[in-house]
């Protein structure tokens, strides 16, 4: 297996992972779980950006996807309630 094949296989895996995470995030009734799934989808996207050789985007996307975005949304559901 060449490096290119490996990159494309990992890309496919992370794309499928992000799809599943998105579906779970949309379907989740517990908003805290929805945030975790949404963050998982962002992590899969971070991996995809890295595999597509865009490390500049990875740096800002990792900080936003793992840190800023879930934490701000957790603050939001603290104010509006956890269950849909």
């Amino acid at each position: 297996m060449s490096v290119g094949d490996l990159v494309f296989t990992l890309l496919a895996i992370s794309a499928l992972l992000s799809t599943m995470a998105t579906v779970l995030a949309v379907l989740a009734k517990d908003l805290l779980k929805a945030i975790v799934f949404s963050a998982l989808q962002s992590v899969a996207y971070t991996l995809m950006y890295f595999l597509l050789m865009a490390p500049d985007i990875v740096l800002v996307y990792a900080a936003v996807a793992v840190g800023i975005y879930p934490l701000t949304l957790v603050l939001l559901i603290k104010k509006v309630g956890r269950y849909e």
Partner: peptide, 21 residues
């Protein structure tokens, strides 16, 4: 190396956000 001003600022902003919580 990859990175830059906005990336560094966004990474740095995670620390005070976690601290706030």
């Amino acid at each position: 190396t990859p990175g830059g001003g906005f990336q560094a600022g966004a990474i740095a902003a995670v620390a005070p956000l976690v601290m706030l919580i």
